[in-house]
Amino acid sequence: MAVTGGVLLLYVVAHMAGNLKVFAGADSIDGYGRFLREFLAPVLGHSGFLWVVRAVLLLAVVLHMTAAIQLARRARKARPTGYAHRARVPGGYAARTMRWGGVIIALFVVYHVLDLTAGVLNPHGVEGAIHDNVVADFRHWYVVLAYTVAVVALGFHLRHGVWSALRSLGMGSARRAAAVQAAALGVAVLITAGFLSVPYAVLFGFVR
């Protein structure tokens, strides 16, 4: 869980940072897209690097989901009879929404790949015209809303996920607990804000 989550986190950080190129103009982001396709092309062929990344991501997602399903099934087996009176589960909102939050993010990724990678759900949908595709998307409030829901869900997922992963790896006993806490919150806020900056910049006309 912690290791596959870590791989996905690295991807999300890189992706978020790459998206910020939208603010540097159409050439910058479209060029970045071409760069990713040509990167290591002599060795891996056109888009080869991209396919390697996709394969690693897919493997990480599958293993991450497998671990989550195993945990959920063990939890159900460990408490076959529930409580008649259910108190609100103590512990944070982020911790309580890990499973459903994960499902929301997974569904979003499917939609998102069909939207901006395959282009089939994109109002513009021209391959390689990343900037125009993104702008065509986020002129619509409902697309922005869908992205907002997913990114906020991702923020909560990371808030608990990063914290829990660091502790699963044995960090955060007493002395470092505060640092681990701060790191998790920092990562979550940074990722959420970074991702959301693009749709809202388009919606409010800063990027056109």
């Binding site: 945990l71 063990r74 087996k77 460990a78 589960v89 103590p90 512990g91 911790a95 309580r96 829990s164």
Partner: peptide, 11 residues
């Protein structure tokens, strides 16, 4: 023994 796996909920 059939206890569940910890997800650090803090409960």
């Amino acid at each position: 023994l059939g206890f569940g796996g910890c997800t650090q909920t803090g409960a």
